[in-house]
Design a protein around this nucleic acid. Structure first.
Lengths: 226, 226
DNA sequence: AAAGAATTTACACACGTTTTACACCCCGCA
DNA sequence: TGCGGGGTGTAAAACGTGTGTAAATTCTTT
């Protein structure tokens, strides 16, 4: 847990967003949607850093922050929507290391996290190992994350595997049958048109991607070579 | 043969799949669909590694494995569909180096193969990107791409297959019937003039190509020899 | 039961293939 | 050397098939 970033927010939406951006950078993450659970998790095994929303059901962020500070000096980044909270965060010396106003830019969050970890002289976790990069597209196979122009795109299982298969063999043409074999398993009995549908989803989600998924008429698909 | 991976499975489908993945990684492959043939091949000239299905017609995988072990310590990866076979593979010390349960992920197979070869300190052969080059013409069979003077030319399915057929047998004359058999399939019932039309398309698209497609009057076509 | 994902279906339309048609060319033969 | 018949080149029409995509349906997961 000590190499993990804990994200505490009552909106799952925001957690997902932060999670995604942080994981792309190689951070491990955990999350909680209420103050009580969060505090429990923190005291149980302190994380590397905490991203903490002020507005929480049950125990609010102020309270969590105060109780954590009684036990630990783990870095905390506060999130708040109300601009008049900012004065209190900064002025009251609650012990937060930094803050962000909602709505926040997730890249800004990443930058702050890195800055704080650098400052507190704890190194971020090991750099992400394998990456496949073509044009403005990056694929992190073991994290199962894809980015276009650095912006993460959330893909479903089949979509990801499909893209990965094409990317691992850039330029080579795959028939629908071959793709079914590889991505769906060679015992899959369904329609080859299933592949088309997932390709369509990929193209839609990865709009703007530079090496495009090219249709080879009458044959199949391939990841474009320049 | 000592740089080749032998795949033994009664399903051609599976052989093709494994073959494809291994060849993309630069491995040479060979295959057999029954135990007797496989054993013959192995004893005749031992391969670099063997991927061996347990379920085989004639002589099963257990028997093949045992007989091979009497002669050689060539690495063996076992394939099995039945989970209760796994205990036997591992427990009975049959001498298999690794195993995979069917249906297996072909990427997993590649990973295992690489791992074993690394362990046995034999390096995998360098990946080869197959290219056929004559004069200023290059053909990339698995990419289904053709270039003239390095500039890619987009061909349709029939055009590509036609050119590839001629290129793979440079200089030999193909009758229209032969070409129909090879490119269109032996059950094609149409006109032989269809070939002419596609040849015309090829000549038009590949204008400037150095070895030309030559008409052999009253016979058929061939790819020119300088 | 509800939500989410995967798969199938349906249909419009783009695209490739095959046929057709006609001009031209090769070659044997007077 | 000129003639004729079948062989070949090629444009364009006719045809059939492949593909993109939305929406419906089925399957999974919670």
């Amino acid at each position: 847990m000590s190499d993990t970033i804990l994200i505490v927010d009552d909106e799952q939406h925001i957690i997902d967003l932060a999670k995604m951006y942080l994981e792309v950078e190689g951070f491990k993450t955990a999350s909680a949607t209420d103050g009580k659970t969060a505090l429990q998790m923190i005291l149980d095994d302190t994380p590397q850093l905490i991203v903490l929303d002020l507005m929480l059901p049950g125990m609010d962020g102020w309270e969590v922050c105060r109780r954590v500070r009684a036990e630990s000096d783990v870095p905390i980044i506060m999130l708040t929507a109300r601009s008049d909270d900012i004065d209190r965060i900064v002025g009251l010396e609650l012990g937060a290391d930094d803050y962000l106003t909602k709505p926040f830019n997730p890249r800004e969050l990443v930058a702050r996290v890195k800055a704080i970890l650098r400052r507190t002289e704890r190194k971020p976790t090991a750099p992400t190992d394998t990456v496949l990069t073509f044009g403005n597209l990056s694929i992190y196979p073991e994290r199962r994350i894809v980015t276009v122009d650095g912006k993460p795109v959330s893909l479903r299982v089949k979509e990801f595997d499909l893209l990965l298969t094409l990317a691992e063999n850039k330029g080579v043409v795959f028939t629908r049958e071959k793709l079914l074999d590889v991505v769906w398993g060679y015992d899959f009995a369904g329609e080859t048109r299933t592949v088309d549908v997932h390709i369509a989803h990929l193209r839609h989600k990865l709009k703007g991607m530079r090496p495009t998924i090219e249709t080879v008429w009458g044959v199949g698909y391939r990841l474009d070579v320049e």
